[in-house]
């Protein structure tokens, strides 16, 4: 029972991790930037979902329809005004720029919303059903997982069938070659960052229903997302999806059979092991870059 309970919880939690990590991986692939503000972008999604629900009474799942375009525009604008100025700069400058942006977002939220944690409570927040064998499945987690699957499928179709999607993938594979082929790589970067922000904010909005919201609530997911991206192969969107679920299950199993306090160590050791044994990750194409 403990095994299956941990497995189910791990998969459902992993779905959220996956959604957060996919945005990061896309940004990494197209722009070659490690985005340390990703957790703060998730936080923005959490607050949007919270205020749309409490002020306008819009169900968090429905509010995604409003959050996604807003987040896209926000990400696009950040890229156009700031991030694009450090593309091609040393990676530590890029990292510090995103760290700085994260500090600005988190502390602005602190001034605007105070540090009091907010809890988004819908009528079904604490509802669950039991599978045979007394295994409990949280309904909001399951719904979030299904939405994640849907978003992943849409993203996959977008990347593989539309012109913009293919241009994004081309830029991701080889920026210079893509430029020579007439692709507007600077626009692709902005679109990638917009989509990355959209996915981060969606992940935030989804997790807000079973988590809590405070100005730094996204930070929990930052290092996890990096781990997942590396596990799946930096730049691989599908890899991030699978990686998220793997990490979710590993965490749950470590908590169940090892100890709750050591589960993060297990994740980081796994992360290093992958870097050493298979640096391009499960689905990566480039090796060390």
């Amino acid at each position: 029972m403990l095994f299956f309970q941990s497995l189910i919880s791990g998969i459902l939690t992993g779905g959220i991790y996956a959604l957060a990590a996919m945005g990061m991986s896309l940004v990494f692939g197209v722009m070659n930037i490690s985005n340390f503000a990703h957790g703060d972008l998730m936080m923005l999604g959490m607050y949007m979902a919270y205020y749309l629900f409490t002020l306008l009474n819009i169900d968090p799942f429905l509010s995604l329809v409003l959050i996604m375009p807003a987040a896209f525009v926000f990400g696009y604008a950040i890229e156009k005004t700031m991030i694009n100025r450090v593309i091609g700069h040393p990676s530590e400058n890029q990292i510090l720029l995103t760290v700085g942006l994260g500090l600005i977002m988190g502390n602005t939220a602190l001034l605007a919303f105070t540090s009091d944690p907010k809890i988004l409570t819908t009528s079904y927040s604490s509802s669950s059903f039991n599978l045979p064998g007394d295994i409990s499945v949280s309904i909001p987690m399951l719904l979030s997982f299904l939405v994640t699957c849907l978003l992943t499928a849409v993203l996959y179709l977008f990347l593989s069938t539309t012109r913009t999607g293919m241009a994004l993938r081309a830029t991701s594979q080889n920026r210079e070659a893509a430029q020579l082929m007439g692709i507007d790589v600077s626009r692709m970067s902005a679109i990638a960052f917009g989509i990355g922000t959209l996915l981060a904010a969606s992940a935030g909005a989804l997790i807000a229903q079973t988590y809590y919201i405070d100005p730094f609530a996204g930070h929990t997911f930052l290092l996890k997302s990096f781990t997942i991206c590396v596990l799946g192969g930096l730049g691989s969107v599908i890899g991030a999806g699978v990686g998220g679920i793997v990490i979710g299950v590993v965490e749950a199993m470590s908590a169940a059979y090892l100890s709750s306090e050591w589960k993060d160590v297990v994740v980081f050791v796994l992360f290093l092991a992958i870097l050493l044994l298979r640096p391009r990750g499960l689905f990566g194409r480039k090796g060390e870059q």
């Binding site: 029972m1 309970q5 791990g10 939690t13 749950a252 199993m253 709750s260 306090e261």
Partner: peptide, 17 residues
Amino acid sequence: NEKYQQGQPDYRATLAK
């Protein structure tokens, strides 16, 4: 005796134990 790191989204495995 379960000590946990703060801020995790999911404690179900710990609680099931």
